[in-house]
């Protein structure tokens, strides 16, 4: 991916503090970046990833049968590319599971070929 020009500003979503980050591609031999505004190393890696390969955790629900509720909450085991978030939710609309399910059970393996599993976030 071609690095963006100029200073990019963003809010770190790594934790509730929400540091205001700045990222700038300096280029040169070392392929250098300037990253500022973070309070911990998570923010620094978030900033670098956000301008090259933005990713998000996805938390949504799937249909469940035979349980006390009609929806089972699920999430991706790790963040997936941001531009696949809505496609994953559409894919999950077609998923239907049957109770009992345990927290951590895989509901959809290798979601959309991202290599990331979708797991149940409660027992139901």
């Amino acid at each position: 991916m071609t690095p963006p020009d100029g200073v990019q500003r963003m809010v770190c979503i790594g934790c509730p503090i929400g540091c205001q980050l700045e990222v700038e591609y300096l280029g040169g031999d070392g392929d250098a970046w300037r990253i500022a505004g973070y309070d911990c190393k998570k923010g620094k890696s978030y900033a670098a990833e956000e301008v090259t390969d933005p990713r998000r955790m996805v938390a949504t629900t799937v249909a469940i049968e035979g349980a006390s509720w009609r929806r089972l909450p699920v999430r991706t085991a790790s963040p997936i590319p941001k531009d696949q978030v809505l496609a994953l939710c559409r894919r999950l609309h077609a998923v239907r599971v049957t109770s009992p399910v345990a927290m951590g059970d895989v509901v959809l393996a290798d979601a959309l070929g991202t290599g990331v599993d979708v797991i149940a976030t409660r027992s139901l």
């Binding site: 934790c15 509730p16 955790m57 938390a59 949504t60 999430r75 927290m103 976030t121 409660r122 027992s123």
Partner: peptide, 24 residues
């Protein structure tokens, strides 16, 4: 149980959990 988004437990479990996971 209804807060199914992530963002819970960063300090207690050092992981970003969903509400139901934190509760369980």
């Amino acid at each position: 149980q209804q807060c199914i988004h992530t963002g819970f437990g960063l300090h207690t479990f050092e992981e970003e959990l969903t509400g139901p996971e934190f509760a369980e």
